[in-house]
């Protein structure tokens, strides 16, 4: 464990707290993509299936449970919460996720760390899917042009978590002999690159004060 990975996990938890605060606390799903939320639920339910047999670290075990629980809670409220459904904009949240899920599934089967293990295929699928899971959310924000304050912090924290993981991988590459994780490195790079445009607008809007809304062209 290093500081980058720890901060990354904390940023990830923060993104969940912000989203839960908005959806469950604020009873509003305005500007939030259900498609992204559902893809994240798939990402965690597939990647953390090793909860059933891998007890290597209590820290990981607890956070895996937290991430699965939080992502399923968010999907549940967005699908069945009366006020959340009323504020969710289904026709704007229209990114064709089948064009993301299918290629990731094919890639997961073809490119993974152990072709004899079904779990490795599922695990690789989950890594690839997480890299693109934010697209429907960014697509929705682009369409709406203006990003509500809480939503902008949620997206920022979610983007920051994987950016911090990139630093974590660099640190581990430099300090641990023959450590290599090309699959997560490349996927994490793609995932973080997708946020660059948002990060730029987030920074532009927040440097004038934290509670300014983010404007996307």
């Amino acid at each position: 464990m290093n500081i980058f990975r720890f901060l990354g996990d904390m940023s990830h938890i923060l993104s969940f707290l912000l989203l839960l605060h908005k959806i469950v606390g604020g009873k509003s799903a305005a500007g939030i993509s259900l498609r992204t939320a559902e893809m994240y639920a798939i990402v965690f339910c597939t990647r953390y299936i090793d909860l059933l047999w891998n007890f290597a670290s209590l820290y990981n075990y607890l956070l895996k449970l937290l991430f699965i629980g939080a992502s399923l809670t968010i999907v549940y409220f967005m699908r069945y919460g009366p006020s959340q459904k009323a504020t969710y904009n289904a026709d704007e949240d229209a990114f064709p996720v089948q064009y993301l899920i299918a290629p990731c599934a094919v890639l997961g089967v073809l490119i993974n760390q152990d072709h004899s293990s079904p779990f490795e295929m599922v695990w690789a699928f989950s890594i690839y899917l997480e890299a693109v899971a934010i697209l429907p959310q960014l697509f929705l924000l682009q369409k709406q042009g203006e990003v509500e304050n809480l939503t902008s912090h949620y997206v920022f924290a979610l983007g920051a978590y994987r950016a911090l993981y990139l630093l974590n991988w660099m640190f581990r590459f430099m300090t641990e002999p023959d450590y290599q994780q090309r699959i997560v490195w490349l996927s994490g790079l793609v995932q973080t690159a997708l946020y660059c445009d948002f990060f730029y607008h987030y920074y532009q809007s927040k440097k004038g004060g934290l509670n300014k809304s983010v404007k996307l062209p």
């Binding site: 990975r5 290597a56 990981n60 956070l63 760390q113 695990w123 450590y179």
Partner: peptide, 10 residues
């Protein structure tokens, strides 16, 4: 080999 790819991260 396992050490290379141990899934020790979230």
């Amino acid at each position: 080999e396992v050490a290379l790819h141990a899934h020790d991260e979230l």
